[in-house]
Simulated assay, not measured.
Amino acid sequence: MGERIDIPAHCFDSKPLFASPPEREVVDEVRAWVKKNPVYLWRGHTHSKPNAEEAGQIRYINDFVLPKGVESPCPCCTPHHAKFGKGYIAWFPLTGNVRLMGQDCFRTLNPEGHDFAVSELDERIKRESEQQFLLSKLGNIPAIMAGIRAAEPIAEYLDDLRDILGPRVQTLTGINLWSLVRSGSLNLIVETREGATSAYYATVAGATLLDPARRRYAKALLMAKQAIGAINLPFDPIKASDIDRSAAAKLMARGVNFAEDTLAAMAQARLFVSVLNTATLRNWAEQENARARLYIRRDGLQLYIGANQKEAHVIPLNPVIDRSIPRLSE
């Protein structure tokens, strides 16, 4: 145990300032206070140990964390010695007192009350989080669904392009593009005293476009629409039951995450057929110590690809390849 801390006598006075559970403003005030000030000096903190009657009822309003390396005395167990860095804002209904205490300290006084208060706090935080999430998203559902629909033609073409640049190009040219770029980088073969080794040359952009194992982008967007569309509208997250609200929050989160992740993946994947990336691939293949011979060039909506320029085949590109990929409405 560390050095004894002299706590001012007034800190131990009862401060029945809270006849009802403290609101969010009090939580914000406490969290701001403890960043720069001793916990026990907060205006609403009662530093005396609760007696058996007062300890019979407790509610954890929220948590707080002290700055790294800082610890505070606890009114329940170590009133004069630093002990905790993570605490609870604890409200005692019988007296209206609030104590800022360590997150496990009250257990020794009332194990059942502590466990109930922790469970109630966890459920309340989850409920409030789901409510706020749904309130921020429900009004944007039409815009979100419109963004997904606008991206579907691009997704479908990128899925088609995987097949075109995979099996079709290999049939036409004998070149397995995926085997050349699957690592995401291009290397050159370098001879050393120890033998041949690989040396980094450049990064390949959008190699995942060709990945035969990836989920089809169009399917992922469909799954996003289905998840969001499964929410029964209109939906009131405040009045809804816990079961219905949690189900709606999961559907919304699943749909939005699917859509956002897929749109980001699409934006990255289509870089594979960009002028810059095809030039990188072409320049790499021109090196004497490259592992393969490849000619690939983007010219407008035409992609030339082959073992060399003379043998290059023309792959026409759908104009949707250059459409802006939508951003989902916040």
Rank of each mutant, 00 (worst) to 15 (best):
T192R: 00
T192E: 00
R193N: 14
E194F: 06
E194D: 15
A196H: 07
S198H: 06
A199F: 04
Y200K: 06
A202T: 03
A202I: 10
A205P: 02
G206D: 03
T208N: 11
L209S: 01
D211P: 06
D211C: 07
D211M: 06
D211S: 05
P212K: 10
P212Q: 10
R215Y: 12
R216P: 04
Y217T: 01
K219N: 11
A220Q: 05
A220Y: 15
L221D: 09
L222H: 12
Q226I: 12
A227D: 14
G229V: 04
A230N: 01
A230Q: 06
I231L: 03
I231R: 00
N232A: 04
N232T: 12
N232C: 03
P234E: 12
P234I: 08
F235I: 08
D236I: 02
D236C: 07
P237D: 04
P237K: 02
I238W: 14
I238P: 09
S241T: 11
D242N: 05
D242Q: 02
D242T: 02
I243F: 00
D244N: 02
D244W: 00
R245K: 00
R245Y: 00
S246C: 01
A247Y: 02
A248M: 01
K250C: 00
K250V: 00
L251E: 04
M252K: 04
R254A: 12
R254L: 13
R254F: 07
G255I: 08
V256I: 06
V256F: 10
L263I: 00
A264K: 10
A265Y: 09
A265S: 05
M266P: 00
M266V: 08
A267R: 10
A267Y: 04
R270Q: 09
F272W: 06
V273A: 03
S274C: 07
S274P: 03
V275W: 07
V275P: 04
L276K: 15
N277M: 06
L281R: 12
R282S: 14
N283S: 13
N283L: 15
A285Y: 02
A285L: 05
A285V: 08
E286Q: 14
E286T: 14
Q287Y: 08
Q287E: 15
E288Y: 15
A290P: 01
R291F: 11
A292V: 12
R293Y: 04
L294G: 10
Y295G: 04
Y295V: 07
Y295N: 00
I296W: 15
I296D: 12
I296E: 10
R298V: 02
R298N: 09
R298C: 05
Q302K: 12
Y304D: 09
I305F: 11
A307E: 13
N308E: 05
Q309T: 05
K310W: 15
K310A: 09
E311K: 13
E311F: 03
A312P: 06
H313R: 10
H313K: 11
